[in-house]
Amino acid sequence: MSSELCVIGCGDAFDAIEASHAAIDATRVWHFIRLDSTDEIQRGAEQKMAHLATSTVRMFAAVDAAALNHARFELYGKLRLLGYVGDTLIHPGAIVDPAAHLGENCWVGPLAQIGPGCRIAANTFIGAGARLDADVRVGMSAWIGAGSSLGRGAEIGNHSVIGNDARVARGVLVGRHCVLESPVHYRDAIADATFIHPDFPGTVRVYSPPPARRAPGRRA
């Protein structure tokens, strides 16, 4: 592993990592590049790392769940295309079972627990005190809020946001691009692009035409 790491971003996750970086790994050389806001990502924030060589420095894109994690995904993607390799950071107070697998650019906050057999795809952030029971699957660029819990075998789709203190029951499937911000117990499957938020008394859904079926015998 490279001994140098550059954390670039803004927001709560960035602050938490900066505050605890010595406890995470005191042996590394840490660089921190704080952005004013996520707007900077579109204005070429990746150029702020130009003085750091891709061969010797790893990167970590630390941006909160803005735009269903697309802001973090965009920054992470830009840095990856420049040749930087992402790291995954686990707070020393978190418990991650050795049989769990985490992709790169993942963050596991303090007191979070990740059970055996969990598979967490790249660029997913898991907040403080969140609990993932065994065999949970979380897609790419997701956000698991502080204090939330995912029951055994639950699956969370790409870019979804599980809000603080929300509870997803055992085996429940949550689609892609979902927001479950109300801190309640979700016992039923949640379709893609469903938004449940305290500001909206009813469910919010994105509707789009089904994908076109391919002609039989033809490859995409």
Binding site: F200, P201, G202, T203, V204, R205, V206, Y207, S208, P209
Partner: peptide
């Protein structure tokens, strides 16, 4: 063709 919709009282 893609829209977002909600209903509330």
């Amino acid at each position: 063709a893609t829209c977002i919709q909600t209903v509330f009282p």
